[in-house]
């Protein structure tokens, strides 16, 4: 009996060893915002190359901590690190994929896309200066919509998040009041409202609370068929949240003149730009300890730039434009080297 058991254990161990020796898994951790697309990419990549990717969506803050502590091959964050922080920790950063953040509402008699809202009044709602749906400011923006005399229930993220970072960054850009009273960060001191955990938490709370307004990543709003609002952008034009308007905002971003790709895509100029567009970033060490693993990771991201567009678009993310991908590959070749100065990944 015990002999059989021992043999089984031995066989299992051998099989396990064989499998782990065969596939070299890349490990990464960080932002939850791009998790759906990263895991989809990893799935397709594994099918094509046999190499796996282990991505833990522990949040942007966690991703930054893990890559600095060198426990993962790459970190992922929605809030880009400032150039001086990159320098201090010896990290390289680049944007990998983009997405949109949309205001979602729950208002009887108002259909998806009926409601139009601009940045300053969105800030006023989240500050508590606008308390009811039939406030004159909102009525003026929506002359054709019948707005009820009901209180607004503000819903925000209760956990720290890259989605909140980009949303509060946008409010800080369009409202001096918001900037001085609250500011922008992945978690802030919300003046009022209900907190909910994760994009799905905000989506559910808005869906279950009459008169609610919140903000979620576009994919969540679309997949749950949520009632979203249109927004007035930087140029004063009303735009709907869709791939086209996110791409317009992305195209306007000036990546070439942003050191360390430190660029936040909210409130971009351009008539068709969606005002709350966000990029999500990858971090690796300039001189990685495990050169082979980093090389594998860069190979994966290079593959994703080249072949991942279809997967990304299916999940309502926006792939990086070709000229930006070219810049990023140049950065890799120039900055990521092994200890003896050799280029880790040659871009092929």
């Amino acid at each position: 009996m015990s002999k059989i058991l021992a043999r089984t254990v031995l066989a299992a161990a051998l099989v396990g060893a064989a499998v782990s020796a065969f596939a070299l898994d890349i490990s990464g951790a960080g932002a939850t915002f791009p998790y759906p697309v990263y895991s989809k990419w990893a799935d397709t990549y594994k099918k094509e190359t046999g190499n796996g990717l282990n991505y833990q969506s522990i949040g942007s803050g966690g991703g930054i901590k893990q890559i600095i502590a060198n426990t993962v091959t790459f970190g992922a964050t929605d809030a880009p690190l400032k150039p001086e922080d990159l320098e201090k920790n010896g990290l390289v950063q680049w944007p990998q994929v983009m997405g949109g953040i949309v205001p979602v509402i729950n208002l009887d008699g108002v259909a998806a896309g009926d409601l139009v809202i601009d940045g300053p009044s969105l800030a006023k709602i989240f500050l508590g200066d606008i308390k009811t749906w039939n406030d004159p400011v909102l009525v003026k923006l929506n002359p054709s919509v019948k707005l009820p005399d009901s209180p607004i229930a503000v819903v925000h993220r209760s956990d720290g998040s890259g989605t909140s970072f980009n949303f509060t960054d946008y409010l800080s850009k369009v409202s001096a009041d918001w900037k001085s009273k609250v500011g922008s960060a992945s978690a802030v001191e919300w003046p009022l409202g209900l907190g909910a955990k994760g994009n799905e938490g905000v989506a559910n709370t808005v869906a279950n609370t009459k008169g609610a307004i919140g903000y979620v990543e576009y994919a969540y709003a679309k997949q749950n068929k949520m009632n979203f609002a249109k927004m007035v952008n930087h140029d004063g034009k009303t735009v709907a949240p869709e791939t086209k308007s996110f791409q317009a905002a992305a195209a306007n971003a000036d990546w070439a003149h942003a050191p360390g790709y430190y660029q936040i895509l909210t409130d971009q100029k351009g008539a068709a730009s969606w005002p709350i567009t966000a990029a999500t970033f990858i971090l690796v060490h300039k001189q990685p300890k495990d050169v082979a693993a980093t090389s594998e990771a860069l190979k994966f991201f290079s593959w994703a730039f080249k072949n991942g567009a279809k997967d990304a678009e299916a999940l309502d993310y926006i792939p990086m434009p070709d000229n930006v991908v070219g810049m990023i590959k140049k950065t890799w070749a120039q900055e990521i080297t092994s200890a003896d100065g050799k280029v880790v990944f040659d871009g092929k």
Binding site: I58, G59, S60, G61, K65, S158, D159, G160, K197
Partner: peptide
């Protein structure tokens, strides 16, 4: 704690 620990930087 449950809400904020993961992203507390």
């Amino acid at each position: 704690i449950a809400n904020e620990f993961t992203e507390a930087d």
